[in-house]
Design a protein around this nucleic acid. Structure first.
Ligand SMILES: [Mn+2]
Ligand SMILES: [Mn+2]
Ligand SMILES: [Mn+2]
Ligand SMILES: [Mn+2]
Lengths: 236, 236
DNA sequence: TAATAAAGTTAGATTAATCTAACAAATAAA
DNA sequence: TTTATTTGTTAGATTAATCTAACTTTATTA
């Protein structure tokens, strides 16, 4: 059985790597992410190594073992199921769910997870558009791109947010955007990188930084990979 | 902010006292209840005293302060709301809910408790018939008695169980009993204290020990106080 | 009431998770 | 290729929660 803290370290390692094109993770990076000191993370890494959850050599990079990855994905699954529960059933707004899910993700009960999953009708995405791993640990991934990559004149559909901070999420709502909204990219200012968009007939302008944190899928785009091609990412 | 463990101690102090006619609680009793050693409980009592949550002098009895009681009741409220959620919404059986609720009761989010309460339509009793404190900390109490106190020839309604262990709860189901069932007391064997009862037209016999762990309300009983007289127990 | 038992306390140790401060290794810059 | 910077490690300390073993106080009983 893992402790609350061990679970957080494993989840952090998985997320840091997964959200950055499966890059290798270092001690300081991990420590920063978890808001602890490098010395603390270093101690924990030794423990996780002893337990066979991470591959790690002194001064080397950190990777999750198969077992470590399994646990990490399980915590992520619980986190996102709880977020969905709070959002769908208890009327939390999408900027409020994360904090509470950070606690709920550590409740130990396989039966609870299974029942919750069923109660929510086996959701595939959480309120932020992030994929919810299924019971086997498989994650549906979409070939999504950011709004900043969409060519002028194209239309796309918002599917997720990259920045999950409540300040950003509230801002997104304020701008009139939400998951599944159709976004038309009208034009881009070369001078200050502002992007003019149209959502539900309403026009507005968003900054480059903003556009980089909105994930979309679309066809006929000038940049990036084909969208709307869901596939399944198996656990290696 | 209280720790997980501090919350458990406060809840334990409240329950030991409440379930035994508001008796005063001792260190060893508390330790036994929480399955820790007396030395451990003693250390914690000092801490809780420092925090103003218990009244306690060396070698004396332990009582909760007003603040301590408030926290204890809040944990109890969360515990019983979660039990109700698991039972009503996720189809857990009544012998499975306690263990998971022991974890869920420590989730810190006032909003979550309020929303959950609303989602469950402000329930007054949990799956075991125990009263759920409302937001103000008020607890509806029934003048219930045990099945063993009911006179031969009387009828009564089962409202709760005294023993919450899953083995007992499973046994109750096996015997064909459940909350809100009408129970007719047919006869009692003087020799071995067996009680013959009838539930939904089905007759069976239960032991003295069993009968002492079933709470009922009824009119026209020979023993005990008047039933069916709900009142509200304010926080003193 | 004196002996015995029960209840409660203290001292010292352990484990998990964290920190600071000093140090070492690896990488980047000059 | 030295030097400087970044990255990572170690040693020693702290806090919360727990334990064992020894000790003290209170309560019971003979
Ligand atoms: Mn967490
Ligand atoms: Mn999310
Ligand atoms: Mn608890
Ligand atoms: Mn209950």
């Amino acid at each position: 059985m893992l402790t609350y803290t061990e679970e957080n370290y494993l989840k952090a390692l998985f997320k840091i790597s997964f959200d950055n094109d499966n890059e290798e993770v270092g001690t300081n990076e991990l420590a920063t992410y978890l808001a602890v000191k490098p010395a603390t993370a270093n101690d924990m890494l030794k423990k996780l190594k002893d337990k066979g959850l991470v591959d790690y050599e002194k001064y080397g990079k950190i990777t999750l073992t198969k077992t470590g990855k399994k646990f990490a994905i399980d915590v992520l699954r619980k986190h996102r199921l709880w977020e969905t529960f709070l959002f769908e059933k208890l009327d939390f707004s999408w900027d409020e769910v994360h904090e509470v899910a950070e606690q709920l993700e550590h409740i130990q009960s396989q039966k609870l997870v299974d029942k919750l999953d069923k109660f929510l009708n086996y959701p595939e995405f959480d309120p932020h558009g992030d994929t919810i791993p299924n019971k086997k640990g498989e994650m549906k991934v979409q070939f999504k791109k950011t709004l900043s990559e969409v060519a002028v004149g194209s239309s796309c559909k918002m599917v997720a947010v990259k920045d999950n901070s409540s300040s950003f999420l509230q801002y997104v709502v304020k701008v009139g955007l939400g998951i599944n909204n159709e976004i038309k990219v009208l034009s881009k200012q070369e001078y200050d990188k502002l992007t003019d968009i149209e959502v539900n007939g309403v026009k507005s302008s968003v900054s480059q930084k903003f556009a980089e944190n909105i994930f979309v899928v679309c066809k006929n785009c000038a940049v990036g990979k084909p969208c709307s091609e869901p596939s399944v990412c198996e656990i290696k």
